[in-house]
Write a protein that binds this DNA or RNA. Structure first.
Lengths: 161, 161
DNA sequence: AAAGATTGAAGATTCAATCTTA
DNA sequence: TAAGATTGAATCTTCAATCTTT
């Protein structure tokens, strides 16, 4: 908080909290991605796009999808290119705003999502949730809320949707 | 833990703990990387290599460095190429094992690390640690310990060092 | 002039194959 | 035969510039 201690090295506890986040995230994402790729030939990021689309009722604006999976606009454009090529998603025009575009979940995409979800869900449980007590779960959720809340105050997301 | 509930959707608390990890990690890494790049023209991953080298007394085996920053071997080879080109790191041969190589922190590299560390440290505090209470810090550290410990039992790291 | 989306070019990372040494 | 490290090819992601619409 203060400027005076900006150069103090991190305490062991601070270091463990910070570096653990980096290490654990890397391991989990790598593991879950490999499991999805192996069992269903779909990368984790693609899976998450399908998942968000499904949760949103089957369609989202491109910029919303980009924000939801933490990808740049151009990054999402290429990803949806791949998903469209594989028949999992379709682009449709946006009646309200001709500049925009919707990403639509296709039947094939929904089927792929349904098939892959048990693999993914099992992986998230086995590699992550199963090792957390209910108290720890709440603590993590509160921590994310606090960190993200502070960030939102400063520089929020980009697109209006 | 059981197979029976593998298809139950995640509870809200589980979802918050898991998706929060993804979102928060993405935001923090993006922010810290941009700050380092802007103030010292060094990417976060490069900074972390210098940091680990410094903590290890100035030299590490290539495979150790790769493991410490969660990069593949080839990924680290290219990264050290860039660091060597910029004069921040030097490759040296390994007396004990002629197959191996050391990455050595140069004086220039150490100076760069010292200069960048206040930016990085301030960023980690401002964007992350300042929003966590001591209790939350301990909770996070314990969670990482638990998750990583379970993973280590299964498939551990690769190189012998 | 600004926002949503895309494109070309460049950068970073990985896989598979290769080289050298153990 | 296996391990440490590197290389070529391919993939994924981003930045800056562009196009269209508001």
């Amino acid at each position: 908080m203060s400027v005076a201690n900006a150069l103090e090295p991190l305490t062991d506890a601070e270091l463990a909290a910070w570096r653990g986040l980096l290490r654990t995230h890397a391991l989990l994402v790598k593991t879950l991605d490999a499991e999805l790729e192996q069992a269903h030939e779909i990368p984790l990021t693609s899976y998450e796009v399908l998942l968000h689309l499904s949760h949103a009722g089957g369609k989202m604006r491109m910029c919303e999808v980009a924000e939801s999976v933490a990808l740049s606009r151009s990054g999402l454009t290429r990803l949806v290119d791949r998903l469209e090529r594989d028949g999992l998603v379709e682009r449709r025009s946006c009646p309200d705003d001709a500049r925009g575009a919707f990403a639509h979940l296709t039947d094939t995409g929904r089927a792929k999502l349904d098939a892959a979800s048990s693999t993914h869900l099992a992986g998230v449980r086995r590699h992550f949730l199963d090792h957390l007590g209910p108290e720890q779960q709440r603590c993590l959720a509160a921590a994310w809320e606090s960190v993200m809340g502070a960030a939102a105050t400063a520089g929020g997301p980009s697109c209006s949707a």
